[in-house]
């Protein structure tokens, strides 16, 4: 029996990046999702898109080594690479809203079993940060949510119904958390992978809706 551990931010990002296929256009949200640009599987060519107006940028730079006029959605400096293109904000969102972006990765407060997403406002705060989240959730072909499985005090964030204000309805395709990988399907939430040392039953215990355990459910690969 392996020791039960939760995935750290870097490892969640690494797992998310395994979803990226050759030629995919991928938009990464602020924070944890942004780290995924560093973990593209070897040999795969992926085009990263940022709503600030750039397509085809490389990994993040070391602090102090970047160009402040070449940043990702989180304002972090990134490397330039051959083939990269820059454009204005309206064009960046034509790409998103027009369905030209294949994968969007973002964080969330809550996800429902139907794939509804809440990630722009904590009700107690009363002021929301919509940013590009509604556009990305509505417009991209595949939406991956990267988040911790529960709140800081252990409450589920994967719920039957959202309690927080909606970012977009029926939009999430895959949820990667610190303990599980869950696919949103028409028949419900399918548990595909668990963190090493965790059982499907333990993941279910921290998830409000009933999970369908995939017959091939296995440990998340950490490399």
């Amino acid at each position: 029996m392996q020791e039960k551990a939760t995935l750290d931010r870097q490892t969640i990002a690494l797992r998310v990046a395994k979803e990226f296929q050759d030629g995919d256009v991928v938009n990464l949200g602020i924070g944890l999702p942004g780290l995924a640009c560093n973990f593209v599987p070897a040999g795969r060519e992926v085009l990263f898109h940022a709503e600030i107006g750039v397509l085809g940028f490389g990994e993040m730079t070391a602090p102090g080594e970047g160009d402040f006029e070449l940043v990702n959605a989180g304002g972090q400096t990134v490397h330039e690479q051959p083939g990269m293109s820059c454009f204005d904000h309206a064009e960046a969102f034509v790409m998103i809203r027009g369905g030209h972006v294949d994968i969007s990765v973002m964080g969330a407060f809550q996800v429902s079993e139907k794939g509804d997403l809440a990630n722009y406002m904590v009700p107690a705060r009363e002021i929301g940060v919509i940013g590009g989240a509604m556009d990305l959730a509505s417009g991209t072909k595949k939406l991956i949510i990267a988040m911790n499985h529960t709140t800081k005090d252990g409450q589920p964030r994967i719920l039957k119904q959202l309690a927080y204000p909606v970012t977009a309805l029926n939009c999430v395709n895959l949820i990667v958390t610190d303990i599980a990988v869950i696919e949103v399907t028409d028949r419900g939430l399918v548990l595909k992978e668990v963190a090493p040392g965790w059982t499907p039953e333990e993941v279910q215990g921290l998830t409000e809706p009933k999970l369908i355990i995939d017959p091939d459910c296995h440990d998340i690969e950490l490399m």
Partner: peptide, 8 residues
Amino acid sequence: TVSQGTLA
């Protein structure tokens, strides 16, 4: 508050 693509 406006969504970003709609603002653009």
